[in-house]
């Protein structure tokens, strides 16, 4: 290994081990460190270009080394986690219900796994995958869907009557999880932002653009059902622009946004509302800005309030 890269890896591993990053998943940690390096460049330059670290290297070269080391270390932790998620935790039995012809589940897994690995090669897509992954690992979808199915209100109606999903609640959860994993795919077709992936999460795309991407994606992903890919892609489109967006896509969009900057709180301050309740309340007021379905937000807000989440 290049000694500079080895030194960069040591430095990155020190950063990754920082207690402030505990409870974050690998991609969240990566995001934090990238931002840390960017924010503190001025104070880090004198030290990192000193003889103890990377003598004679410019800041851009140092940053390149650190980014490479960071990606390698993140992938080491992320690879097995994603493989475990797709191969063992997500059930693809729902595919048979949303697809007229039968597709072996294993083939779906293989294709999705390859696709995610492809996503991870592009910084924008990599960053865009962080929140969906946090949403899945945080167990948001199952928790809220269960309450929605108990209440049998708007979300239940949208999923079962409008989208016509004849699935068990667990299978709908898996369907939304796959939708979440496909959500960053739109980033494969966007112009890079200098490799930083800034402003990815809040960026909505136009329905027309999503439709174009869908055509292209259908050519690339031949196993996964097009309705699933469509759901993943259109979760990036504003509900105000296209009111025909699948309920699963709308749910994925909301919880992907919820998971951004999500960090479990050990204890909520006395006098403050709970984290989910606060988030849904704030997001209800910004629903147009984020392109969310206000009725869904209202129902999730009510659930969060009643459940003290």
């Amino acid at each position: 290994m290049d000694p500079n890269l080895a030194r960069a890896t040591v430095f990155i591993n020190h950063l990754l081990a920082n207690p402030a990053l505990n409870n974050l998943n690998a991609l969240q940690k990566e995001e934090q460190i990238l931002q840390f390096l960017k924010t503190n460049a001025q104070s880090l330059v004198p030290t990192l270009s000193s003889p103890q670290f990377f003598p004679g290297k410019s800041w851009n070269e140092i940053l390149q080394l650190l980014n490479t080391a960071l990606m390698q270390e993140t992938d080491k932790a992320l690879g097995p986690q994603i493989e475990d998620l797709i191969r063992r935790k997500i059930s693809f039995s729902f595919v048979a219900e949303i697809q007229p012809h039968r597709i072996p589940e294993e083939k779906c897994r293989d294709e999705l796994l390859k696709f995610i690995q492809r996503l991870l090669q592009k910084p924008e897509a990599r960053k865009a995958l962080s929140s969906p992954l946090t949403a899945i690992l945080g167990g948001f979808i199952g928790r809220y869907l269960k309450k929605c199915f108990d209440a049998r209100k708007y979300v239940h109606f949208e999923l079962t009557k409008v989208q016509r999903l004849r699935l068990e609640i667990e299978n709908i959860e898996h369907l939304v999880h796959v939708t979440l994993l496909l959500r960053p795919s739109v980033q494969l077709f966007t112009v890079g932002r200098g490799g930083t992936g800034e402003g990815i999460e809040s960026a909505l795309v136009q329905a027309q653009f999503a439709q174009t991407v869908l055509h292209s994606m259908k050519g690339q992903l031949k196993i996964l059902p097009p309705v699933l890919i469509r759901s993943g892609l259109f979760s990036n489109v504003s509900f105000q622009e296209d009111t025909q967006i699948d309920a699963t896509a709308r749910i994925a969009a909301i919880f992907s946004s919820r998971a951004k900057n999500y960090k479990p709180i050990a204890r909520v301050d006395r006098g403050a509302n709970t984290p989910d309740r606060s988030w849904f309340s704030i997001t209800r007021r910004n629903y147009k800005y984020y392109g969310f379905d206000i009725k869904m937000l209202d129902e999730f807000y009510k659930i969060a309030s009643e459940s003290e989440w």
Binding site: N18, I33, Q35, T39, N40, E198, N286
Partner: peptide, 23 residues
């Protein structure tokens, strides 16, 4: 809070947990 949320979203920065003091 909604204004703060929109501003943070526009800036596109994730909320940083690390500080130079940490390292």
């Amino acid at each position: 809070l909604p204004l703060k949320d929109r501003t943070q979203s526009k800036e596109g920065q994730s909320l940083i947990e690390l500080d130079t003091a940490d390292v």
